[in-house]
Design a protein around this nucleic acid. Structure first.
Lengths: 260, 260
DNA sequence: TAAGATTTGTTCGTATGTATC
DNA sequence: GGATACATACGAACAAATCTT
């Protein structure tokens, strides 16, 4: 976790190091110290008292610095004896949330997201063919089971929609290439948020579900058979139809707005 | 910027809302309040005093909460009259840094990264054909100019290597699809970090540069001509050779280690 | 169960720094 | 330069959580 890129300086490195508002600077200093000590996830940091000494700052400032690191997901803190702050490996969930904050201000379209899904998901599927354990395949099957029958209420419809995205999230979690897995998982999360908050599930779309689930079952089969080519193809088709249907769904909603 | 996903609760939503360590909870409350007020980037938040009243917490706690939001890149704060805290749209730089923290603990291989670059960069190139303004093309040309001549020192070699990644970063910044642009920019940043800190530039590789620069110049030409097909093809070749050369470079370094 | 030890969490009062007018 | 309006920082006391005995 090298220099946080908080300052815009690219050249004037050595010059004025301690210009930024204190707690941020202290947080960076702590970060550097942790790295220099070679601390790993789970290792314990010094207590507040020692920090105050080591960095020559008051308790409040040290605490603000720790909050910064905590907000970034880099440390966890517990009270009580044996408590204190501990180096923490940033969780995928946390990373997705933080990145979500960035995209909160940009408005991604369904098209933006599906452009990427169309490139990436098929590759993920292919890379996983023959590589999943039986319990992982079973997990996927269990999820697909949740939307075996068409939903009867809007609430159920929503839950099923979310579950089908969970299918992709789980699949992403099995990726060997963690960068690929993270991005796909992140997109699944964005789509989940969009689904819920833009009510993309609302006019229930029976076609989407029967088709979508059929593709997912075919995919599981291909993965179990170790058929990479087929897995890629199935996922590719799945993405293409999903995009078309989602965008139709979106259009449907807009129509609803206009006629209202 | 909905629920930060800090807690692992998926179901017990309404139950015990204020269990987490206080400042984090206050930060979340402020976040929710900002959203509920519909505040946008640049809008001003209440001063510390008013915050203390509104959230019923003392100055110290409010400050810690603000630090959390600041660390996430969601607010900026200034001192002085007319100062205070302001909603801030998370910058790309900040988002990349935060995401970098996540991957700091996972070790991505060059192969992981290039698998993605091979899929994405060609699509980016194609999507930009005929879409760039002359000044943007000029910027790219200026960057390519920086490594026109082979480097003579290791220091220069490093700078050129970094600059050639900057070429891709800039290109990513021009993307219409912001998700695509962000990911490509992020990968360029990771590669920059790897280059510098694993000294991937060290045994200067003349071949890499002459080839790489040639591809980039061809790419600019194709972009200027609005030739999407050619842009995609050139970038595709560029990525393939870059990966091969980078991995050879990495192997070279390992050899150096072993014989040392 | 209860007491005590340990470590973070929270508050308040005060003083200092900094940018604008 | 001085007044003003803000954030920034410090220190001491007290509260809460959690582990041990």
């Amino acid at each position: 976790m090298p220099g946080d890129g908080t300052d815009r300086s690219e050249l004037k490195a050595g010059a004025e190091v301690q210009k930024r508002s204190r707690p941020v600077a202290v947080a960076d200093a702590i970060k550097d110290w942790v790295v220099s000590q070679g601390l790993r996830g789970g290792d314990r940091l010094p207590g507040e008292a020692e920090m105050m000494e080591r960095f020559g700052r008051s308790k409040g400032t040290i605490r603000e610095a720790m909050r910064i690191l905590e907000a970034q997901g880099l440390v966890k803190t517990r009270t009580g004896p044996g408590g204190g702050s501990f180096v923490h490996e940033v969780s995928g969930e946390r990373a997705r949330a933080l990145l979500g904050n960035y995209f909160y201000f940009r408005d991604l379209t369904l098209h933006d997201i599906y452009s990427l899904r169309r490139m990436m998901e098929p590759e993920l599927a292919a890379s996983l063919a023959g590589k999943l354990r039986e319990d992982q395949l079973a997990t996927l099957e269990e999820i697909a089971e949740r939307y075996r029958h068409p939903a009867t209420t809007a609430e159920e419809e929503r839950a099923q929609h979310v579950a089908s995205l969970l299918f992709h999230q789980r699949l992403a979690g099995y990726a060997e290439n963690e960068l690929l897995g993270f991005i796909i998982g992140f997109m699944a999360q964005i789509l989940t948020d969009m689904t819920v908050y833009r009510k993309l599930y609302d006019p229930p779309n029976v076609e989407l579900w029967s088709k979508g689930r059929a593709y997912q079952l075919q995919l599981i089969e291909a993965l179990r058979d170790g058929d990479a080519v087929r897995a890629r193809l199935v996922m590719s088709d799945h993405m293409a139809t999903a995009e078309a249907l989602m965008e139709a769904q979106e259009a449907e909603i807009l129509k609803g707005f206009m006629s209202a």
